[in-house]
Nucleic acid binder design. Structure first.
Lengths: 129, 129
DNA sequence: TGTATTGTTAAAGTTAACTTTAACTTTATA
DNA sequence: TATAAAGTTAAAGTTAACTTTAACAATACA
């Protein structure tokens, strides 16, 4: 019942294991846009935290910040034009199929690693007669 | 039956959709070590090509070139010391569990994207009465 | 209430991963 | 065989993604 709903920049930074300057840098790059206190200090909502998590997740898959910005753009677009929404839909489909390709690649990478491990295990056995 | 077994740098580059200088750069970073012709030009074997593919695959998952170098190191280690092999095994296990974590994250990312798509589809329907 | 801690901005600095350039060599082809 | 295309190295240049610094403001707490 006692879940925090707002965080200071250093609180959020340590939660996500990144530095405060990284968070400021993402803001500069328009990836987040937190509220401010009366004294001009940043306050982050749970939504901001979720967004940061999405950013870090995207990064771990090798998406650039520009690509992540585009993905985020889809989420909070306030546009009501059919054509724009359709463009975004096409973009979303592209990303989803990319994600599926990545999953297959992950399987390949896992196979590679398992093969290496096997090889190492065999060598170990050889040595231990 | 007519599968090529060796490639020039530009052949390989266009197959993998990267530039020749990128391939040279990876060599400088000790990620590959192709043979040379009598005239000192690089020739790449299918094994070299497979290695490059592994490098690119790793990159797409956000591994740095240094990390990829370590992974590759496992594959062609010529060491026969038990302790070294055991260290490598531990490293391989770490990577494999990391890969599994990534797969879970990929699922999360896909869920995010599907939710965005849903949202877009709903908006489209609203507009089209 | 003073002072240590944390925050703010703008600008400069750093690092990884390439890319480009220049000057030259090798290979392919009309 | 000449010349265009492709290759070679070493060094300098570029870009993305941070990180650090400096100078100052807001906040927390003994």
């Amino acid at each position: 019942m006692s879940e925090k709903t707002h965080y200071s920049i250093s609180e959020l930074a340590s939660m996500l294991e990144i530095s405060p300057s990284t968070i400021r840098f993402y803001e500069e790059k328009k990836l987040i846009d937190p509220d401010r206190t009366s004294g001009n200090q940043r306050i982050y909502s749970r939504k901001d935290r979720a967004r940061l998590k999405l950013i870090l997740r995207g990064k771990r898959f090798g998406f650039s910040l520009d690509e992540i910005a585009e993905i985020i753009g889809l989420a909070d677009m306030e546009v009501n034009e059919t054509s724009q929404i359709e463009k975004s839909l096409a973009y979303a489909d592209k990303r989803i199929s990319e994600i599926r390709t990545r999953r297959n690649e992950l399987d390949l990478l896992e196979t590679d690693m398992l093969a290496m491990k096997d090889n190492l295990l065999n060598r170990l056995e050889e040595i231990q007669k």
